[in-house]
Nucleic acid binder design. Structure first.
Length: 890
RNA sequence: GCGGGCAUAACUCAGCGGUAGAGUGCCACCUUCACACGGUGGAAGUCGCAGGUUCGAAUCCUGCUGCCCGCACCA
């Protein structure tokens, strides 16, 4: 660092109060101008610290949860930047997906049809209410729809960027991406092609979890259990060729027509005679096989159950393992599709009756079909056995967990359709190992990942029947008879990416061959948004287009995220890096907790307990808000408490005032560490050096909250309350001579310099403000955020104190005197004409080293120290205060 | 059912084997020349419960209770 002449401030040139919002504008502009947060592509990988920033969903609202977790990342990043790291801290926008689709549909009153051709001259405007009600939505092509999505999301992105800039995220704003931009589409499609070539994806026709409202397939990770009211319906089945009968229990009687088998536990004595025979279903009189299965629980229901295609995951399992037939009666819209009994697919002992019953069900939703079928089952004529109604007793109500799409309202159905899957099940062990190769902060979050990965039940379904997403870059050959051969997949060529198979033709085909016999059709589906989001490290590293850059930025160092998306974002990102490059995508995962409302409920939009950040930023300043966020440990859920913001704001003010005081102290000569010669100052410098060590260790362990706590405690109690008061008289020149004064001022400056840098990651604005008054010029570093993190070299040349406890002794004696003054109703500033102290011998010796500072700070004019036998004694035996001074003359 | 986290002063949180801590709030006092967005002092807790290990436990172990979360179950 270049040594400049110390600059002394004239405090009258500074404002009386800190104007936070003006400072926020001023320093934000300077950081941009100086490029303080810019990544330097020339520096080597080992100097670089790469962040895989979470791209926020831009169609969502801004809330304190964003401020909270993004501040955590920023604090870690800023400290590492000060350690000299070349920071790569990009920002992404997650605009791909359903939330944006919904917003665009409403905003422009449009619907998407992937089959339509792109209209380059399409012009739509925001739909007003009349049009919204009156007209049909305008149908637009997928490419047009995507363009509209861009229009809407670019406005949302600005709102997020404004907030993120205001809270001073030290993002390199020249490194931004969106999960639907060209690079993202190219990268996601390249990812698919790589998996395709490696044989890691396939597109079977298979039962898949399906949301009947959004009408799309969904993956296991997007499914959540919700408790739902249901009922056991006891239905009597017959046995083919006998008068035997048995009763199954089901919560889904509406699937009776889809019944393909009956099963019970092989050891269940009640059903021993049935295995290998065929059961006859009520109403539809379908003969279905009865087979034993270990998966049937004799304790549940009646111990015997019907297998349908498909009521749940276990049905899918049995369908596969037993080679059962497929009777899909639930359509993609969640209604019962038309079927005909008496056919090969739907056999019946009485087709006429079966069709008559089924006619009353088809076209109905699952819920109303259930009501209707229960009524039919009450009719004795529908019995499979002739023993009265098939519904043998009234339904027994129960509550049971039912799978729902996380964004949906109605239960998921299993619908057979052709979908693309990434084969993850064979990778389970490898993915568990990858999870152990990254460090989780806090470590217990690893258990969440392990839990999920161990229980992975399905391959990853990555195709979605939606519009605003990345198209799957494949076509299928059309046979000469005009039907599509989905097993004949034509994939895009890498150099043509990104492509849209609905408007681009596959290699070797002419656009005119679309849909023609011998031609091709494009896959109309898009990828699961996680298919793209799981590539965020590769999006920012430009994996698809810039191998040299990718090598410098991948794997990343830090993935910050929240814990509810460990099973999705963290899991899929690990999976992609593993499948593509056989590596981890990052070395560290930092998991932020949740913000809870004062009733300890999670803050969420749906609950309506969300606190929005903008008002709080106005009231408590960005630094104050950051102080609150940085005070929470990683992984710990924290109740939102405005009091903490208030404390942050107070800390900012105190720094402003302390800075003003320190920099306005004058002394002659050089003010480097070698000027620190006085015992009190040396002891203080020693304590400060110890603080630096502790704070640095905290940051190494991702414990920024603890580093802040330690720094704040030291600043407040050791620095402003103790050292600053004890050294005041000497800094003013009241005693100690030039050397004493110089020593005090040098210490004050060292303290301010070091403390500002320790606070800088958390409080970027106030620290920059105070830094700018003198240190920016003196140290030749215009921004504190590029200044080096405090270290041992800052203290080189300071001689060790004679006694380790000099600061503590001085502080204790000062406190004892102040306490006595307070008890006598005198102000701390009152002059003490005579003081008598009784102290232990050790303390007396210690006090002697700092006596002048202590008695000047407490304004003691004369004193006597009595030595007590008690080693640790410290008592003010008598204290006489001077009469109150008359008000200062004008 | 399996797994994880949390439980410390009225509130928000530190402490995680050696005599209970901070800030806020509360009470009293103090215009003290960086700061009343301040200062000084004070009151305030059988550290969820019950056992155990230890010379010594808020801290380690076991069990329990409460709150929160993940996974599974879903006939």
């Amino acid at each position: 660092m270049t040594a400049h002449r110390p600059k002394t401030l004239d405090p009258t040139t500074l404002p009386a109060h800190f104007d936070a919002s003006a400072a926020e504008r001023r320093w934000g502009a300077l950081w941009d101008e100086l490029g303080v947060y810019r990544w330097d592509p020339e520096r080597p990988r080992e100097d670089t610290y790469v962040v895989d920033t979470p791209p926020p969903t831009v169609s969502g609202s801004l809330h304190m949860g964003h401020v909270f977790s993004y501040t955590h990342t920023d604090v870690l990043v800023r400290q590492r930047r000060m350690l000299g790291k070349n920071i790569f801290y990009p920002m992404g926008w997650d605009d791909n997906g359903l939330p944006t689709e919904r917003r665009v549909q409403n905003y422009f009153h449009v619907r998407c049809d992937a089959a339509l051709a792109y209209d380059p001259s399409l012009a739509v405007t925001q739909a007003d209410d009349a049009r919204r009600k009156g007209e049909r939505p305008r149908v637009v092509s997928r490419r047009n729809f995507i363009e509209l999505c861009h229009t809407v999301t670019s406005a949302d992105e600005r709102a997020f960027e404004d907030l993120f800039r205001r809270i001073a995220l030290s993002v390199d704003w020249s490194q931004t991406y969106a999960t639907i931009d060209d690079n993202a589409r190219r990268t996601a499609q390249a990812s698919f092609l790589d998996l395709f070539r490696k044989g890691l994806v396939h597109n079977p026709e298979a039962p898949t979890m399906w949301d009947v409202d959004f009408q799309t397939a969904v993956a296991q990770a997007e499914v959540e259990d919700r408790p739902r009211d249901g009922a056991f319906h006891h239905l009597e089945f017959g046995v083919e060729g006998s008068d035997q009968r048995f009763t199954i229990a089901t919560t889904r009687p509406e699937l009776l027509a889809a019944c393909v088998a009956v099963t019970a536990h092989p050891k269940d004595p009640r059903y021993q005679g049935l295995f290998g025979r065929r059961a006859i279903t009520p109403l539809f009189r379908a003969p279905v096989p009865i087979f034993p299965s270990e998966l049937a629980d004799p304790e549940k229901g009646t111990g015997v159950l019907m297998v349908c295609t498909f009521g749940d995951q276990t049905d899918v399992h049995w369908w596969r393992s037993e080679g059962l037939c497929l009777r899909q009666i639930i359509g993609r819209d969640g209604r019962l599709v038309p079927v005909t009994f008496g056919t090969e697919a739907f056999p019946s002992a009485n087709p006429e009756a079966a069709n008559r019953y089924y006619e009353q069900l088809q076209g109905k939703t699952v819920a109303s079909a259930q009501k209707a079928v229960v009524e039919l089952l009450r009719d004795p004529a529908g019995s499979a056995t002739g023993h009265g109604p098939a519904l043998v007793q009234e339904p027994v109500k129960l509550q049971h967990p039912v799978k729902h799409y996380e964004k949906g309202d109605r239960p998921l159905e299993f619908v057979t359709s052709r979908q693309w899957f990434v084969k993850l099940l064979p990778q389970r062990a490898a993915l568990l190992a990858r999870g152990d190769q990254v460090r989780w902060w806090p470590d217990f979050m690893r258990a969440r990942y392990r839990n999920w990965t161990e229980n992975l039940g399905q391959d990853w379904c990555v195709s979605r029947q939606r519009y605003f997403g990345v198209p799957i870059p494949v076509w299928y050959r059309v046979r000469e008879d005009g039907t599509t051969d989905y097993n004949s997949v034509l994939v895009a060529e890498e150099h043509t990416l990104p492509i849209d198979p609905m408007s681009d033709a596959p290699p070797g085909y002419a656009p005119s061959q679309r849909g023609a016999p011998g031609g091709f059709v494009g896959d109309p589906d898009v990828f699961d948004t996680w298919f793209t989001s799981s590539l965020t490290p590769q999006l920012s590293s430009r994996w698809a287009t810039d191998p040299a850059r990718h090598k410098k930025l991948f794997p990343a160092d830090l993935r910050p995220q929240s814990h509810e998306i460990i099973r999705t974002w963290a899991f899929y990102t690990l999976a992609k890096a593993h499948l593509h490059e056989g590596t981890v995508p990052w070395h560290n995962v930092a998991i932020s907790g949740w913000i809870l409302d004062p009733d300890r409920k999670k803050m969420s939009k749906s609950v309506g307990n969300v606190v929005t950040p903008l008002g709080l930023l106005d009231s408590f300043s960005a630094d104050g808000v950051r102080y609150w966020a940085a005070g929470a440990r990683l992984g710990a859920d924290t109740a939102f408490d405005e009091k903490v913001l208030k404390v942050g704001k107070r800390l900012v003010t105190k720094l402003f005032n302390a800075g003003k005081y320190v920099l306005s102290q004058e002394a002659s000569g050089a003010l480097g560490p070698e000027a620190i010669t006085h015992e009190l100052d040396r002891a203080f410098a020693r304590a400060l050096g110890a603080l630096v060590g502790r704070a640095t260790a905290c940051f190494e362990g991702y414990e920024f909250a603890h580093a802040l706590l330690e720094t704040e405690q030291f600043f407040w109690s050791q620095f402003t309350d103790t050292y600053l008061e004890l050294s005041k008289a000497r800094a003013r020149g009241d005693h100690g001579g030039d050397a004493g004064r110089r020593s005090a001022v040098a210490t004050l400056r060292l303290a301010l310099d070091v403390l500002l840098r320790l606070f800088a990651p958390v409080l970027p604005y106030i620290t920059e403000e105070v830094w700018s008054w003198a240190f920016a010029e003196e140290k030749g570093q215009r921004s504190i955020h590029r200044a080096p993190w405090p270290r041992a070299e800052d203290f080189e040349g300071v001689t060790a104190p004679e006694a380790e406890d000099s600061l503590e002794v001085a502080g204790r004696v000062m406190a004892a005197i102040n306490k006595r003054k307070s008890e006598q109703g005198a102000s701390v500033g009152r002059v003490v004409t005579h003081l008598e102290l009784t102290v232990g011998a050790g303390l007396a010796a210690g006090l002697a080293r700092v006596a002048e500072d202590v008695f000047s700070a407490t304004r003691v004019q004369s004193h006597r120290v009595l030595v007590s036998d008690e080693a640790d004694a410290l008592a003010v035996t008598s204290l006489e205060v001077a009469p109150k001074e008359p008000a200062a003359e004008a």
